[in-house]
Design a protein around this nucleic acid. Structure first.
Lengths: 213, 213
DNA sequence: AAAATTCTTGACCGAATGGTCAGGGTGCAT
DNA sequence: ATGCACCCTGACCATTCGGTCAAGAATTTT
């Protein structure tokens, strides 16, 4: 009985072809979004025939679902690592650096996520309201405790996290624009970005004495 | 002779229908991207028949092009207003506020832009490398002069602008995620965001005495 | 090496999509 | 009210798209 369905990587060939297809699909979906992508595009990208793609996956949507599932796991991980520390400013900056590295190393995943959110997150809205919200709320309580202890400047934890997400992912999602504006001088743009973001968040997080209230 | 082509708003009806179509198209394109949108969707959204849409525009691509043209003009405007000031910190923060207001008031335009960039900016790459780069470079020189005068903290002007763009547009492009994470408590999320971003950039821009080099 | 299983594809199908066109309807100036 | 330019649409067309299937090729098992 065929119908390999989702990720049943039993045989050698199954494992290889499944990975091959998912990699091609990530490339295509992250660029054109779900509705803008075609199975033929994925097949061409993977160097396989269309029916062959559909031999391993139960359809376009099934491929997309697998990619999104993997994505969410990868995406939440860095935030999970945000934990207690003697130096909260360094701890948060390390998170910023980690997120920026992910934008550099996994830009396609970042764009896939961006595409899904842009389109109203039809397939991951539940995960956003569930696991993502829970994890975020938890980390926000941690950040709030740092604020209460006077270890970092007082600011809204949720919006701080939004700022971290947006500034770091920008270098993956808007890479074309970044390159266009920086011109060819932007060779080491990730190094420059890292320095900049470290300054930005360090400057904002470090508590000030000239602050009343 | 028919073939109204692009924006030939001569008669009353032409003006009204053209606007109606562009509004509907903005709604659809900003959600599904160019390739993921169909003329039928735009027609349904506009309350018109498909052939009627094609009576006013020479095709799906023509509509998209008009929207992008208008967008770029709107998009560059706030940055153009960044100018000399006795208080550069306030000047930049005013720009941040202006950009955030645009995310609130024109989220569809923001998402249309994001979609285009995500897909590699096939239709506006020239504008990015031309007008956008020129304007950005010019404003970066202005910012650099403020830095040299010691009026704001030393940091990379280009990446500062990227941070402003990303943090503000995040509230339009990733609105679904923001809402999911904040829950129903996010009623006045734009007010909260405004306060937060003002803190963020003020904290970063204000020169510090405890800074060597 | 033969049998059983897994893998691959050309040909095909129904639905959706971008776009056309002839003909009829509508608004407007005279 | 009538002529004319402008406006609108049902029907239609070619192509693309997601997906199926039978039959053959490759691989593994016995």
């Amino acid at each position: 009985m065929a119908r390999a369905a989702s990720t049943k990587g039993n045989t050698r060939i199954q494992r290889q072809k499944t990975r091959q297809i998912l990699d091609a699909a990530l490339e295509v979906f992250s660029t054109y979004g779900f509705r803008g992508s075609t199975i033929d595009q994925i097949a061409a990208q993977a160097g396989l025939s269309k029916p062959n793609i559909l031999y391993y996956f139960d359809g376009k949507e099934a491929i997309h679902r697998v990619l999104l599932d993997r994505l969410l796991h990868t995406w939440l991980e860095p935030l999970e690592h945000l934990g207690e520390s003697d130096n909260p400013v360094d701890e948060i900056c390390a998170y910023v650096t980690r997120k920026l590295e992910m934008s550099r190393d996994y830009p396609r995943e970042s764009r896939l996520f961006a595409n899904e959110i842009l389109q109203g997150a039809p397939n991951i809205i539940a995960e956003l309201q569930g696991p993502l919200k829970s994890l975020t709320d938890e980390k926000c309580r941690l950040i709030q405790s740092w604020i209460d202890a006077g270890k970092i400047a007082p600011l809204d934890p949720h919006h701080l996290i939004f700022s971290i997400w947006s500034t770091t992912q920008h270098y993956a999602d808007f890479d074309v624009q970044v390159q266009a504006v920086l011109g060819h001088a932007g060779e080491d743009r990730f190094t420059a970005a890292q320095t900049h973001l470290d300054h930005l968040f360090r400057g904002m997080l470090t508590p000030r004495l000239d602050h009343d209230v």
